[in-house]
Simulated scan of single mutants.
Amino acid sequence: MGSLRVRPFEEADLPDAAAALVEVHATDGYPVEGVSDPEAWLRSDDVLASWVAEADHQVVGHVAVMSPNGEDAVALWIRQSGESPERVAVLGRLFVTKRARNRALGEELTQTATAYAQTHGLRLVLDVMTKDTAAIRLYERLGWRRIGETTHHYGDGQQTSALCYVAPSS
């Protein structure tokens, strides 16, 4: 894999980003929802900004900064910090295809989203399923702080344990 870069998402990226999402779901079981209509999931009305990772002009990763939509991590952070809800956003839709891993693309995507949030006066939070150990290691290595635990509900009454994190302060 040659040239790598992270850049803002463009509408023309949607089919390739959706295909990468389906690929990640097949290899990792992430995400647990959204795979039936990956284009709609990636372009949710809650997306404030998003980026893709490219390798050799092919989309191999994605991340988004999103408006809160009932996430437990948001409620936990607001309760713990006293932060105004308007100043909190969610890091979401982060994935990198298996063939593009171990090249720091997940780190670069996360840092790009974090920089955007800081520039816009937002504090990022997220929840991550406990099964996603590589993602947990990434967030902790980048200084995200665990603020609690929750249960992620999805699908037809399914659930799994998850951890809530807040991004480091700027």
Rank of each mutant, 00 (worst) to 15 (best):
T114R: 11
L21V: 04
E107D: 10
Y139D: 02
A167P: 00
V63E: 00
A134N: 12
L124Y: 00
L124P: 00
A12W: 08
L124N: 00
S161Q: 14
R87M: 13
S44L: 09
V74W: 01
M1A: 12
A134W: 08
E11V: 15
T150L: 05
D13M: 08
R99H: 13
V166P: 03
L21M: 15
T114Y: 06
G155L: 05
V125T: 02
V128R: 00
I147H: 06
Y154H: 11
A55C: 12
G121K: 02
D46Q: 14
R141E: 04
R93D: 02
P38A: 07
T112Y: 04
V35Y: 07
S44P: 04
D127A: 03
L76Q: 12
I78G: 02
L138Y: 02
T133L: 12
R93Y: 02
V32A: 11
R93T: 03
Y139I: 00
A113D: 01
D46C: 15
A100M: 04
R101I: 09
Y165Q: 05
K131H: 15
S50G: 10
T27A: 11
A73L: 03
T151K: 12
K131S: 15
D156F: 10
Q111N: 13
G29R: 05
A75R: 11
G92E: 03
A20R: 07
A19C: 09
H62C: 08
E140P: 09
T160P: 08
D72G: 11
G157A: 06
